[in-house]
């Protein structure tokens, strides 16, 4: 089995602090970590390898500093890691990211399964997994909470739905995105960490994945951030007066606009 896990480096959400004056996120001094959902993707990939044999390749697209999350992946037990990093990849939206990752997967040999976290906590879009699958023209299953049966060419998985779950069978290769209840990610051991420290992290650019220049990065991104702004903030402690009905109406008016 050749399992590919895709991971993203994100600012540690547990360290996120808001500047009380400006309402903006304070980014200084915030550690960058593996996107929490992606840890479960990586853990599942490692478990599959441990029970069925094979190898785990980990992909990450990001700036040069994203190398660190790939070292963390090696410490946990990844066999091979690749950093997709190049100025031309920068500014990618979910479409360009899906394309870039899909190109990288296509360059790897005999991939059976690609596992991504359900979404990244910095963007929360949940679009790259299905987008990659579309680019690779292979099936996908989102929000997987359990793998029931896995062979070289078939996967049966439990997928969370809005009202419960479905048991879905797809032929492999396929892309799945996973939720946290799937497993508990391991803490890496000292030996793994030492191995990770010394490891060379290969970096791939557009040529390495034979990407078309106008389909990556900012150029390949149909969506543009037109502007960013602070949401209207109500100062702390706005008291809502009136009869219970009036209070309830005032509250709902504020909450529904969030």
């Amino acid at each position: 089995m050749h399992i590919v896990a895709c991971i993203k480096q994100v600012p540690d959400p547990s360290q996120a602090r808001i500047d009380r004056e400006t309402g903006l996120v304070i980014r200084e001094g915030v550690d960058k970590i593996i996107n929490p959902y992606d840890l479960h993707a990586l853990e599942e990939a490692l478990r599959i390898k441990e029970t069925k044999g094979g190898k785990v390749t980990v992909l990450s697209m990001g700036p040069a500093s994203a190398e660190q999350v790939l070292r963390d992946a090696i410490a946990m037990g990844a066999d091979q890691v690749i950093l997709l990093s190049d100025r031309q990849f920068a500014g990618a939206d979910t479409l360009a990211t899906s394309y870039t990752l899909a190109r990288a997967v296509a360059r790897l040999e005999d991939v059976n399964l690609v596992i991504c976290g359900k979404q990244a906590v910095d963007g929360d879009t949940a679009q790259v997994g299905p987008g990659m699958a579309a680019k690779l023209d292979i099936p996908h299953i989102t929000q997987v909470r359990k793998l029931r049966e896995l062979t070289e060419d078939k996967l049966v998985a439990e997928k969370l739905t809005d009202r419960g779950y479905e048991v879905v069978e797809v032929p492999l290769p396929a892309v799945i995105t996973v939720v946290k209840e799937l497993n508990e990610p391991r803490i890496p051991g000292l030996r793994g960490m030492m191995r990770a420290k010394k490891a060379e992290i290969p970096v791939w650019g557009p040529e390495d994945i034979e990407a078309e220049a106008d389909r990556i990065g900012l150029k390949g991104s149909p969506t543009q951030v037109w502007r960013t702004f602070e949401p209207e903030r109500h100062r702390k402690g706005e008291m809502l007066e009136g009869t219970p009905s009036e209070q309830a109406a005032a509250l709902w008016q504020r909450l529904r606009s969030l």
Partner: peptide
Amino acid sequence: ANGRSLAPRVAARLETGLTAD
């Protein structure tokens, strides 16, 4: 859950932009 699975797949097939949530 279904919409968030369907939309990115279709958007990628159509090579167009998709904004979530």
